[in-house]
């Protein structure tokens, strides 16, 4: 009885979480352009998608910004972790406090603060400003996933490498790096996901000539969303789903 209640509860929550996703997938096959009516099954939006240069451009921008910002944030974050680890406790606490600001602060405040900065610096709003903003809010996620690994490290192994004649560089890449690699990878993935799904900060730091998928969707909201968008997000979602299932089926144990 209790088990049945638990199962029903979990099922309801899952329906709640995944109902909009199912809706979007269904809409991507809907021949009617209206969100509210079912006009029969079609694949036409999928064909049109690959001819729609606007959407493809936005997709390219989104992916490029997500990849670059996650990559740069991972590099800066990894170096920062090494530096933070060797700091005195007081400085470390302060720096970690500052690191957490973009994560705990409201996105709208982060967005407008960066917008003001770029205005004062006289920068052109466009690809670069979005990229800088994304790197900034990605770094905390990277640091947060590397730090726990860093703390578990045994400093003697690194010193042993130095004693055996390795340079700092060599010691890092052959001793420390392999140990913190899982943290680096999950930090990168987290940053990539966050960047991909971001709207608010992009909204404030983008210029008129450039769009990511999020900002494009937002401008389309009032006019009505093009069904090609549903097709595209269905493709993205299914790709990720398949990738995740494949990764999860491999027996290797990984920890997040």
């Amino acid at each position: 009885m209790r088990n049945a209640a638990k199962k029903i509860y979990i099922t309801l929550i899952f329906i709640f979480l995944y109902a909009p996703i199912v809706t979007l997938i269904v809409l991507s096959f809907n021949a009617s352009k209206s969100r509210a009516k079912w006009g029969g099954f079609t694949l036409k939006w999928y064909q049109n998608l690959f001819k729609n240069q606007d959407i493809l451009n936005a997709l390219w921008n989104t992916l490029l910004i997500a990849f670059l910002s996650a990559f740069i944030a991972t590099v800066i974050g990894t170096i920062a972790c090494i530096a933070i680890q060797s700091m005195k406790k007081r400085n470390r606490t302060i720096l970690i406090g500052i690191t957490n600001i973009p994560m705990l602060n409201a996105e709208i405040v982060t967005g407008i603060s960066l917008m003001l900065l770029f205005i004062v610096l006289g920068m052109n709003f466009g690809f670069l400003t979005i990229l800088l903003a994304h790197i900034t809010f990605n770094i905390p996620y990277v640091i947060l996933s590397i730090m726990p690994r860093m703390k578990q490290l045994n400093p003697s192994t690194y010193e042993a490498a130095l004693d055996l004649g390795a340079s700092h560089m060599k010691a890092f890449f052959s001793v420390t790096f392999p140990d913190i690699l899982p943290g680096i990878l999950s930090g990168f993935l987290m940053a990539f996901t966050m960047s991909l799904d971001d709207f608010i900060i992009t909204h404030f730091t983008k210029g008129p000539g450039i769009d990511t998928l999020s900002t494009k969707i937002y401008t389309e909201v009032k006019k009505g969303i093009k069904p090609e968008m549903y097709a595209l997000s269905t493709l993205i979602f299914l790709t990720v789903l398949v990738l995740l299932i494949l990764v999860n089926r491999s027996p290797k144990e990984k920890d997040v």
């Binding site: 996703i21 809706t23 809409l27 996901t193 991909l196 799904d197 969707i217 968008m229």
Partner: peptide, 23 residues
């Protein structure tokens, strides 16, 4: 478990919220 809750994030959150209009 984490995956199940992160997975929806791969579908744009504006679209997911819009879908509630339809629902």
């Amino acid at each position: 478990v984490v995956l199940i809750f992160i997975l929806p994030m791969w579908m744009n959150f504006l679209l997911r919220t819009m879908a509630w209009q339809t629902l």
